[in-house]
Every structure is written in C-alpha cells, then in structure tokens.
Design a protein around this nucleic acid. Structure first.
Lengths: 370, 370
DNA sequence: TTGTAAGCGTTATCAA
DNA sequence: TTGATAACGCTTACAA
C-alpha cells in the first residue's frame, strides 16, 4: 500500500494508511536497499572539499541527483588510488554508482577494479581512460585560448605558473600554454615555467624569481586563479603595475576573480555543469546495466576578458587543432550577468569544444560470491 | 575473520583472507547496517548548497566525521518544515543521526517529531529550541559589536540592510544592531531598516532609496557580505566614496570581503568549526543513546576591521549584556594570516561569547512497531 | 576453534 | 484481493 500498489482494495488501503500514520511509520531504507539491490544513492569521491570549485561541483551533483530522487553520499580526502579504492569498497551496497574525481592520473588500475563492481563516472580524468565514463573540463583548450589572448595582445615573453606535477589539470593547462606558443612561432622555454601547487601562497612565493628574470616576462599565465591572486598580491607589494608593467591571467573564474584589482582575465569553467553532467551520465549507466557503452564528455572552457591583461582589442583564435580529437567551436557573444553588482566581465570568447565519444565498455561488471 | 575476530585459528584466517581477495570480496554495507542497526553515516539536511558558507560547513562536518570513520549523506533544498521531515524520513535506517540546518524558526514541531526517531543536532537554530542539540553562531553579539564599532567611529545615523523576514540569522543580526543603537542612546528607526534577501542583487537594489534619504545615513550595516558587496557596487556606480562619504560593514567574512575596494569590515564566522562542532555533538548524542542530555553551543562572531568603515582607532565595547545568557568575552589581538596575499584584515575584536548549556532531554526517543 | 541458525525490515513470489 | 513465505547479506548467539 505504502508503495502505491494498485492491487489493494480501497478500504484496506485506508486502514493501512491510518495505522502507518498513527504509528508514525518510517520505512527502513537500509532494508529496502538490501532487498532491492537498489539504494537510490550516488557515492561521491573527492580529493578535497576546499574552495568554490568543489562546492559548485557538489551543488551541480546534488541538484541533478535530487531531481531524480537520488541522495548523495560524500567522502573526501581521497588523493591516492588506494584511498579511493577503500572508500569505494566502503560504499558497496549503499550506493548505486560512483562519481570519482581523481586528480592524479595514475589510478587507472584501481578505477578499473571499481568499474567491475559499480557504475562509475570519472570527473576531470585525463583523456585516455577507456572503459569508463568521463566528464572533463577542456583544460587544454582553455589554456591554449588564454595564452593566445596574451599573444594577441602583443606579448612574446609569456611565463606560466604551472600547477603541481602529476595533477591532470595542471598538465593539460601546461600543454595548452606550450602549444599556443608553438603555434604562434614562439619556442616554449622551461625557464619561463614556474611551479606552484594551486595555492595562493605558491603564486606569491614564485614572484621573486619570476620578476628577477632578465628580460622580465611581459605576461604571466597562472594555471589557476588562486595562484594568480597570490601573484597579483606580490606585484602590488612590489609596486609593479598590472597590466601596464605586466599582464596576468588565471584559470577557473572563481568568485573573487572579478573583484581583484585589476579584475582578473581568466578562463571560466562551469563546475556546476560538470557535476550535473556526471550525474546524468551515471544515471544512464545505472539504468543501462553493466554492458553499457561508455561516454566521454568534455565541457568547454571560456576565456573571460577583464582588465588584468589590458583590453586592447585583438583577434581571437578559435580552438586549436588537436590530433586526437575532432573539434567544434561555437562563439558566445556576451556573458549574461543577472548580477547587478558585476564589475563587468567584459567580452568572452568560447575556447572550448564540446564533444562526445562513445564506445562499448571493455568489460562487464561481475559480482563475486554468487 | 574479516572483522578481526580473535577466535579463529591462524591457518583458517589466512585461507579466508586469500579467498576474499581472490574473489575481490566487498562487504555489503546495507546488509551490515540492517543487522547492526548502525550505519556509520551522518545525514546532513541543508536549505541550500550555494556559496562559501555552506561549503565550509560541509567541509567541517566531513573532516570531523571522517576522523571518526563516518560518511555523510547530504540532502539540500530543504527550506520548509515538511521538506525537512520528508528528507529525514527518507534517510531512516541509512543514517545514525542528523545534522539539520533550518533557516526558519517555525519548524519546531517537525524537529520534535524527528527527535523521537533519530539523534539530531540543529545548526544555527534560534536559541529557544529545547530538547535538541544546537550549535549556533552568535549572530546577536556579532551584529551588536560591528554596530558598536560604527558608533565608536562617530556614526549616529546608521542604516541596516537586513536579511529576509523569518530567517533566524537575519532576525538575530537585526536584534544586535538595534540593541547596540539603544545601548548607545540612539533610537532605532524603522525607516533606517531596509530589507534584502541575502543576495548581492538585493544589496544593490536597496541603494536608491537608502541614498535618497535626507539626511543620508553616514553608515550602513549589511546583514551579510553578499548584500554589502552589492551595495558597494551601487555606491561605486553612483560615485559615492567609501568610507569617506559613507561607511559600510558586512557579516560573514566571505573570501571576497578582503578583496573588495575598499576591503570590507565585517564579522567573521567560523563555518568550518560550526560543522565540526555539530558532528562532535551528534556523535556524543549517538553514543549516549536516547535519554541523553542536550547541549547548546554558541560560536563567537568576531569583528574584522578593514577599510570600508574608515580606520580611526576607537574604543571597542565588549559583548553586550543579554538577559538570557551569561557571557564570557575574550580578546583576540591579531588575525593570524598565513596567507601572504592577504590585503591586511587589520585588528580584530572578538565580539562573541562561547557558552554551553546543558539540560536533560525533554523526551526520549521511541521506535514504533516494536 | 568451527559450524549452524536466526533475524534485521524490506519486497517479490506464489498460493489461497 | 489477501495472506504467507522466502530471500537480500550480514552479524550474533549458541551448539558442536
């Protein structure tokens, strides 16, 4: 009766409801999950919860999940492969599928073991993960486009503050930066590649060496906005003007980016959408069963031009060719800002591509002990 | 064997482990929960996931929970009492306890029904919720202190942009603002109380009426930083200087506060700690069983002086007397900023009190159908 | 030290 | 249309 079965008489139905509400009956979800082998819960494994990016991803996941009546079970602090595997195991029976963000590429073997057990979607994994569903940000194209933007403004000596080695996002953004230089006939130089760890502090600390170079770089592409923020603070402390003396660009378009002085030119990434897409893919995988095809979606990254690189108009390149992928570029004319307090993000170029690759899953899922 | 029982011979133990790893055995957590009536999961019910405040609360909850080997099941978008009740019911059997943030005070009856079923901790509830564990922010003291700060700077005509009616935080902050005026011999006037909804946009839209007042207020206390941000943007658009023409203060100390121009004087609230405390209380309640005493913890709110109110030194008042509570004030001399990019938060006064009230729970928990 | 059986609260199946 | 029974995968208690 409580589950809406049609095969019960009206009178019995009423008595059941009366009793249930009199007893204040709450069904036991664990028992239901056990019996149905279905929990209506999605497991989320994240390396960290710090900062706006993760919070937006979770918000996107939560909204998409709740629309389909799914709850989300979150577990963070999983950077290494083994921790991810342990967390996944500890969710067995309690979740119908997993959304996993593994910042380091090396977890492939572990991911594979999980895939045999549970439907899974990887967030922001490196491209070459086959046999899995993946949703990722087009880090390469975003970095390429913003570097092209700097080149278009006349800069030739462009440094970068890269993210940590081994981090997938960091590597892709570096690759995009280098490729943009090469395509413009500029040879990438290791001396212009400084290493940070995605924290504000690292952007700050990198500044003495960077500024001491002779000749000094005329522009800097920081691989995320936090490092750009730290770097800008260091410049302010040194009395170096932005963008007059040096141009600075970031990546992520976090909330503070447009409040910095000068407002930061950066690359926008739709974290909310990233989460929402992951849910959509995961629910499809759950519905389709073990033998389903795998999908790979790439979200575009769009350049947001503000004031930190100067605003001379320049011809923007479209997305770069990339041997491994077909590409499709579309232009977005303006940023729709319902927010009246916006300090004006300026024009936006879409540097991303949206693509979908589909292939059969390499292996089915199996259940042990049956 | 897998659960570490001591009463098994070494050889059998080895064979079991071998078989388990050969079969890649993953225990089924739902079955375990069912049998043990223990899930090692905490349910989190939030009105929203948007913004830094919630993200920090969740981070605090997650860290504290994972330290005790608990996972967290999140469900958001629960503003009204009925939605909260439904979400709680849908978690029955799957969680060992609940952390609930109910922004509106009116949910008392619902909370009460939940309390009979599950251990529960309320986040940021209005003070007079008895029979429940509560962790809240000292909104009253924070608003009181920042208003006193404005008064101390010589302002007499101080407007406020209050939060939405019915919202507990908003009401408490308004109360603190009014009380500070009264204690300084200034009569609070309704005409100086503008209503926003905690969004940036509402802070912006309130500005025309506020600025049109004659005489114009010399200072404005916005009940959160988002509204302060919107209001500042409106001032900038009107060419009104801050703090020379008008002083502005906020509440929350969100990340962008110190990057605004001028950097925003505001009230800091430790959202991470709020979440962590809630977990501590909840785990204690779970361990203690249905008959346990209830605790009420109040986290301090500290004024962070930056540049948006001017920086003339002023004698700071300590926390206000409050008939219902004993108070204990401590001073914090400086903000420890490990962050090199900090634009200098300036001196901080602790306007909060930390208190703990303990009383026996008014009602035990009961299980129906037994 | 090992094996067996019962039961957690559901839902699915089958018989009445 | 209703009622009885088995089963989901685990842990606990008790017997061997």
């Amino acid at each position: 009766v409580l589950n809406g079965s049609a095969r019960v008489s009206g009178e019995t139905c009423g008595r059941v409801w009366a009793a249930a509400s009199k007893l204040d009956y709450w069904p036991n979800t664990a028992a239901r999950s056990l019996r149905q082998s279905r929990s209506h819960v999605l497991g989320i494994l994240l390396p960290d919860l710090h900062g706006e990016f993760f919070s937006e991803v979770i918000r996107g996941i939560d909204h998409a999940a709740r629309r389909e009546k799914f709850q989300i079970l979150i577990s963070s602090s999983h950077a290494e492969a083994e921790a991810i595997a342990a967390a996944a195991r500890s969710m067995r029976g309690r979740v119908d599928g997993l959304i996993v963000m593994a910042p380091h590429g090396e977890s492939a073997a572990v991911i594979d073991r999980i895939t045999h057990r549970l439907p899974i979607v990887l967030l922001n994994a490196p491209s070459p993960v086959d046999g899995s569903n993946v949703v990722s940000i087009d880090n390469f194209a975003g970095a390429y486009a913003v570097t092209r933007h700097l080149i278009g403004l006349g800069h030739r000596r462009i440094a970068t503050i890269r993210g940590p080695r081994g981090n997938v996002d960091a590597e892709e953004r570096l690759r995009g930066y280098r490729r943009a230089l090469i395509d413009a006939g500029i040879r990438p130089r290791r001396a212009l590649e400084f290493t940070g760890d995605f924290t504000e502090a690292s952007g700050y600390h990198v500044s003495p060496q960077l500024l001491a170079m002779a000749p000094r770089p005329s522009a800097v592409f920081a691989a995320n906005d936090s490092m750009a923020t730290g770097f800008l603070a260091a410049l302010a402390a040194s009395g170096i003007r932005v963008p007059e003396d040096i141009a600075v660009a970031g990546f992520d378009d976090i909330a503070i980016a447009r409040y910095l002085s000068p407002a930061l030119t950066t690359v926008r990434v739709d974290a909310y959408e990233l989460g929402a897409r992951a849910v959509r893919l995961l629910l499809a995988a759950i519905a389709a069963g073990p033998a389903a095809a795998c999908h790979h979606e790439v979200l575009p990254a769009t350049v947001v031009v503000r004031h930190s690189c100067g605003s001379r108009a320049a011809t923007m390149p479209s997305a770069p060719p990339d041997g491994t992928k077909s590409s499709h570029t579309k232009k977005i004319a303006t940023l729709v800002g319902s927010d009246p307090a916006s300090l004006g993000p300026g024009p936006i170029q879409d540097a991303g591509r949206h693509q979908r690759k589909t292939r059969p899953s390499s292996a089915g899922r199996t259940e042990a002990l049956q």
